[in-house]
Computed example of a mutant assay.
Amino acid sequence: MTADQLLRAARAQGLRLAVAESCTGGLLAGALTAPAGASLVFERGFVTYSNEAKQDLLGVQAATLAAHGAVSEEVAAEMAGGALARSRADLALSITGIAGPGSSDHKPEGRVCFGLAARDGTRTETVEFGPLGRDAVRAASVQHALALLVQAVERAP
């Protein structure tokens, strides 16, 4: 499903979307706002590349960052929950990962964590895209995020 189809499906269900991005640097928000009429569904996006931005804008706890690192399901959950709480959206998706080049803190290049928050809870997952190169990891992350949002919209009551 394309971003345009996702937006139409969300609009048909009366759902609004928000995103919180780190390693993708706004690429997901860009994909979601490219189709005409996106403003009817896309509520807002947060680009929180630094740990400080994650804390200031999304309420990610310093203790969570210290215990698990920025690339973790725990941080992805707090990012998604923060985006949901700080918006008028019904669904919020977060992305945090290591696009490369290189690995960091015992975490391999291509590891990306996703969070999906709705009013009934938050779920997370980690995808190991591998060392595909920075641009490919970021593009794969956006595609995976779109698929997660499609699933969430399809599950919505």
Rank of each mutant, 00 (worst) to 15 (best):
V112F: 11
V112T: 08
V112K: 12
C113E: 14
C113M: 06
C113F: 09
C113D: 08
F114A: 02
F114K: 03
F114R: 00
F114W: 05
G115W: 06
L116W: 05
L116E: 08
L116T: 01
L116N: 04
A117E: 11
A117F: 06
A117D: 10
A117Q: 02
A118M: 11
A118Y: 05
A118V: 12
R119G: 14
R119N: 11
R119P: 11
R119I: 12
D120Q: 15
D120K: 15
D120E: 15
G121Y: 12
G121W: 12
G121H: 14
G121R: 13
G121T: 12
G121C: 03
G121K: 13
T122E: 09
T122F: 00
T122K: 07
T122M: 08
T122V: 13
T122H: 05
R123T: 14
R123W: 12
T124K: 03
T124P: 10
T124Y: 08
E125H: 13
E125S: 14
E125C: 15
E125D: 15
E125N: 13
T126L: 12
T126I: 10
V127Q: 05
V127I: 14
V127K: 09
V127G: 10
V127D: 08
E128A: 15
E128I: 14
E128M: 15
E128G: 15
E128V: 14
E128K: 10
F129Q: 04
F129Y: 03
F129M: 00
F129N: 00
F129L: 03
G130D: 00
G130R: 01
G130M: 06
G130S: 01
G130L: 02
G130C: 02
P131D: 01
P131T: 10
P131I: 08
P131E: 04
P131N: 03
P131A: 13
P131L: 04
P131F: 00
L132D: 02
L132Y: 11
L132I: 06
L132T: 05
L132E: 02
L132M: 03
G133A: 03
G133L: 01
G133F: 01
G133N: 06
G133C: 09
R134L: 04
R134Y: 09
R134C: 10
R134K: 07
R134S: 08
R134H: 12
R134W: 07
R134N: 01
D135G: 11
A136Y: 02
A136L: 08
A136N: 01
A136F: 05
A136K: 07
V137D: 00
V137M: 07
R138P: 01
R138G: 02
R138T: 04
R138S: 04
A139D: 09
A139F: 01
A139Q: 09
A139R: 09
A139S: 14
A140L: 05
A140F: 05
S141C: 08
S141I: 02
S141E: 12
V142D: 01
V142P: 03
V142R: 06
V142I: 04
Q143D: 08
Q143K: 13
H144E: 12
H144D: 02
H144K: 11
A145V: 05
A145P: 02
A145R: 01
A145M: 05
L146T: 07
L146M: 00
L146D: 03
L146K: 03
L146W: 12
A147P: 00
A147E: 10
L148M: 13
L148C: 11
L148A: 08
L148W: 02
L149E: 04
